[in-house]
Amino acid sequence: MTAMPDAACAGKRPCVALLSSVLDMSYLAPAFREAMPAVDLRLGADLGALDEIDAAVCWYPPPGVMARMPRLRLVQSLGAGIDHFHTDPDLPRAPVLCRIVDSDMAGTMAAYVTWAVIHRQRAMGAYLASAGAAHWQEQPIVPPGRHCVGIAGLGTLGVACAQALLAIGYRVRGWRRSAKHDLPAGIESFHGPDALDDFLSGCNTLVCLLPLTPQTHGFLNGPLFRRLPHGAHLINVGRGSHLVETDLLRALDDGTLGAATLDAFAHEPLPPGHPFWRHPRITVTPHVAARTEAIAIARQTRDNLATLDRGARPAMAVDPALGY
C-alpha cells in the first residue's frame, strides 16, 4: 500500500526516537543532527510526548514503547535485517519498516569473512600461540585451491564474500533457498532443500549469511553439522538465532566441527559467563563483521521520511511477513 502524506507533517520539525534495549544509541546523535539539522531527537529513558514522534530508529527495541506512538510513520532498523524487532511483540503494524542498505557493508563483510577463513585455514591461531612462547614452529600449508568455502545465503553480502575468496584462490560454493541465475563465474551454486546435503558435503568452511526467518531459525544445528566434512570450520555472521548453541558445543567437543568463528549471538552483549568465551575452539567477536556508519543511518532515515512525505513507499521498505 502506498503511504499517504500526513498534512499535519508538512513543514513540521521531524521527531525521531532512538530506541534500543541493548545499545547506547547516543553515538548516533551527532550524525542525526548533521543529516537533519532541524530534528527533534529523542533518546534515553525520557522520550517526552510519545504522540509527537514520527520515526523510531531501532536495534532490539524495548517492548511496548512504539505501540504508544500514534503518529509513528517509520520504523528504521539499524542494520540490514529486521529480525531484532521480535523483542517487541506489540510492534504496531501501520508504520513502514525499513532496513539499512549500505554500499560499504559488502566490502566490510567480505574483509571479515576472508580474515576468518584464512585465520583458521592457515593455522594463524597456532602461530600466535607459538609466537607468544617464542617458539619457531611451522604448520602444514594447504593451498587455498584445496579448501572449499560454502556460503549459505547468496545475497549482496554473500556474493561479495564469494568474490573476495575466489580472488585469492579458494574454491567457493553457495546455497540459497531459491535459484539465483546471475551469480559471478566461479561460484558453484546450489538451491533449495533438496540440494542442501550436496552443498554441505563439500564445505571445509561453512559461512552463514542467511536472513533470519522462521524457516532459518536454528538452521545451524547438530544434524546439519554432521552433514559437513569432519572437522569443518563454522563462521556465523548471520544472526545468533540461526545457531543452536548446545549443538555447537557438542559438535566441537566430539570433533564433528574443528572450530567456530562467531560474530552474532542470540543474547547481546554475550554474557561474561557464557561458555563461548572460554571454549578453545571458538573465536568470539562482538557483532562487528559489518557495521554501518552512523551518518549513513541518519541519511537513510531522513530520506525515508522524505519519501513518505511525498506519498511514496521507500525503496528500502521490507515485508515483515517475509523478514526481509
Rank of each mutant, 00 (worst) to 15 (best):
A3I: 06
P5R: 14
K12G: 12
P14D: 01
C15K: 09
C15M: 04
V16S: 04
L18Y: 05
S20W: 02
S20R: 05
S21Q: 11
L23S: 09
S26P: 05
L28I: 00
A35R: 12
V39R: 13
V39A: 09
V39K: 12
E52S: 12
P63V: 03
V75I: 15
G81C: 06
I82S: 05
P89F: 00
P92Y: 05
A94F: 01
L97R: 15
I100D: 05
V101I: 10
V101E: 11
D102T: 09
D104Q: 13
A106F: 02
G107C: 14
Y112D: 11
V113T: 03
W115M: 13
V117L: 06
R122W: 01
A129K: 11
S130M: 04
G132H: 11
H135E: 11
E138P: 11
P140C: 13
P143E: 13
P144F: 10
G145N: 14
R146Q: 15
G150C: 15
I151R: 08
G153A: 08
T156G: 08
C161N: 11
A162M: 04
A162P: 09
L165P: 02
V172M: 05
G174F: 01
G174K: 01
G174C: 08
W175M: 07
R176C: 03
R177H: 07
L183P: 07
A185Q: 07
A185L: 02
E188N: 03
F190N: 08
G192I: 10
D197V: 03
D198Q: 11
L200A: 06
G202M: 03
C203S: 06
T205M: 01
L212C: 13
N221L: 08
G222N: 15
F225C: 11
R226G: 10
R226S: 14
L228Y: 02
P229Q: 10
H242M: 00
D247Y: 06
L262T: 04
A264I: 01
A264V: 14
G273E: 09
R278D: 14
R281N: 13
I282H: 01
V288R: 15
A294P: 09
A296T: 14
A298H: 04
R299Y: 01
T301S: 03
N304L: 01
L305T: 03
L305Q: 00
A306T: 13
T307H: 06
A312N: 04
R313E: 05
A317V: 09
